[in-house]
Structure formats: structure tokens, C-alpha cells
């Protein structure tokens, strides 16, 4: 954002400025959401009913990991199921019950 439009003056304004995340900003539905931020644990609308951005999420927890892993929340955590982990979903039929089975290790 051009500095002249808005300039943070107090400390909470400065904190709001820091939220800018490099990356995909032009997804129409999720405007303003810090996309792909892997350090924040956020799942499903029932556990995350925020009234402001990033606002209450699109799907429930049970759908969240698989549905939100495209251009959205979990691209880093969701395993690559084309080449390396083709059948990962079989370990995890019900995410809310089976998430502990998701033991993915990056081979170096």
C-alpha cells in the first residue's frame, strides 16, 4: 500500500501493518487472509469464528485439511499426493480422528 494513503501512527496501527504477507493476494474469496501461513493453527468454521479478517473459515474442520490445501491454508502441510504420497488419504479417513496418522517426513 502506498505510504501516503495511510500511515500508521500508534503501536497497534504499526502491528496491523506488519500483517502483510508476501504471496498470493488476489484470490477473490479469501481477500486479506494470510495465505499459506504455516505457523498459525486454524481449522474449520466451528473452531475459528472470528468476526473480522481472516474471517470465519469456509468449511468445517472435517473438510478443512483437504479442501483448504490448494491455494489456501495448508499447501505446505498437505502431502504431495501425486508423486510421493499418493494414498495419504487412506491413512486419514476421518481427519478429526486420524490426524495423528499423518506422519510426513521430508526426505533430504
Amino acid at each position: 500500500m502506498k505510504k501516503k494513503w495511510l500511515k500508521a501512527i500508534n503501536k497497534s496501527a504499526q502491528k496491523l501493518e506488519e500483517k502483510e504477507v508476501f504471496g498470493m493476494q488476489d484470490v477473490d474469496v479469501m481477500t486479506g487472509m494470510p495465505i499459506g501461513c504455516t505457523t498459525v493453527f486454524d481449522t474449520g468454521w466451528e473452531t475459528n469464528p472470528r468476526p473480522a479478517t481472516p474471517m470465519g473459515n469456509c468449511v468445517s474442520s472435517a473438510r478443512d485439511f483437504t479442501s483448504c490445501s490448494g491455494p489456501c491454508w495448508w499447501p505446505a502441510q498437505t502431502p504431495d499426493n501425486i508423486t510421493n504420497w499418493p494414498d495419504f488419504q487412506n491413512q486419514c479417513l476421518a481427519i478429526e480422528r486420524d490426524w495423528r496418522n499423518l506422519n510426513f517426513v521430508i526426505k533430504r
Binding site: 500500500m1 502506498k2 494513503w5 495511510l6 500508521a8 496501527a13 496491523l16 501493518e17 500483517k19 502483510e20 493476494q25 481477500t31 486479506g32 468476526p51 473480522a52 479478517t53 474471517m55
Partner: peptide, 14 residues
């Protein structure tokens, strides 16, 4: 940029 910036700074809210 202006729209995004205002949204990020919570000047604009859902």
C-alpha cells in the same frame, strides 16, 4: 492495492 491495504489494516471489515 488500496482495497487490500484497507482490508489488512481492518479499516474495511467483512
Amino acid at each position: 492495492a488500496l482495497f487490500q491495504g484497507l482490508l489488512q489494516r481492518r479499516v474495511l471489515i467483512p
